[in-house]
Design a binder for these strands. Structure first.
Lengths: 184, 184
DNA sequence: GTCTATACACCGATAGAC
DNA sequence: GTCTATCGGTGTATAGAC
């Protein structure tokens, strides 16, 4: 078991239980590694594990979800590609978002800067698509924020209602909401 | 210190730290009560404290936020009243939502049913306003869900960006989003 | 109704063998 | 690189005095 493999397991634990709830016991069980082995891969302990998770997810998000937004496809198609990846990433809305989770408790103090940066990266990438579609920078920023709001809110509702439909519907609506008024 | 007073303090702790992060030490400090005293008011311990918090918030939500939706004001005004109460309740978006927090970790297993019920109560109350405004039941339900999505998502973004503007803007937009197409 | 004192499990973390 | 064993601290919970 190398570190990247371990990190993938860690992601699941932190997403399900949050920072405080992600105990070394649960992490040990999820990875199959003993506690001492975990400290071989992450000498600074749980805090480093969470940081590694955040970095891994940040890169995955950048390469898998935001990359389609910068492709040569037409704008609407780029948004649809992002939506498809989001559906996969969040398991149709059943898995929580680390960015939301890490704004709670201790992890907020530790990782607020990274969370802020990742949210802005997402918003900026979305806004760029709209600017290319002829929307003003100011309007593009507002619509991009609204899109992130809708995805995050849909995650909460889908998990709370135990029904993936709100999340699916929100993803379907994204291209329309973002590019309304553009020549499509 | 009687139990209702204690519960009000508990709400803050659970909202800030989540279920697992709300330790008896923090609760003891926040309430000024020793751990043993807490067990006088809540014999079943932390689980009962969280349940009391959820019930208290549920009643407060019902009486303070949903009540205006059933008033005799015109629909748009009812939505505006709800938005004002929401702004107060969530401290302009700086305080997290217990319903979102309790869908994580252990607390999800314990309180999923209550969270589900409270979200549905909110959605139903919103939908009722729209039905009275001439919107079909089906459409009303969809718009109501969207409103909850937007409030929850705006909370995540406002907290993540450390900027209350997205939350404020979302609340301002609610009447328009919900009653678009109605004679206002 | 609140306290001090305490029980016992689990927490994050470390030592050292293999 | 993984393990067993263990540390000091903290977690939830309880006993019993006042």
């Amino acid at each position: 078991m190398d570190r990247p493999q371990a990190v993938e397991k860690l992601v699941k634990v932190f997403r399900q239980y949050g920072y405080e709830g992600a105990t070394l016991s649960r992490i040990s069980q999820a990875t199959g590694l003993g506690k001492a082995s975990l400290y071989h891969h992450f000498p600074n302990g749980k805090q480093e594990m969470a940081a590694a998770v955040l970095q891994y997810v940040g890169e995955w998000f950048e390469n898998t979800i935001l990359m389609p937004l910068r492709s040569q496809e037409e704008p609407a198609q780029r948004i649809r590609l992002m939506s498809d990846r989001l559906r996969q990433f969040y398991d149709c809305g059943r898995s929580a978002c680390l960015l939301a989770i890490f704004t709670l408790g201790e992890s907020d103090d530790l990782f607020h800067a990274q969370v802020n940066q990742m949210l802005n990266a997402w918003i900026d990438s979305l806004a760029e698509v709209m600017v290319e579609s002829g929307i003003s920078a100011k309007q593009a920023r507002l619509r991009a924020e609204d899109a992130v709001i809708q995805v995050q809110g849909a995650l909460v509702l889908t998990r709370g209602l135990d029904d993936t439909e709100p999340f699916e519907r929100t993803l379907r609506q994204l291209p329309v909401n973002l590019l309304e008024g553009c020549h499509l």
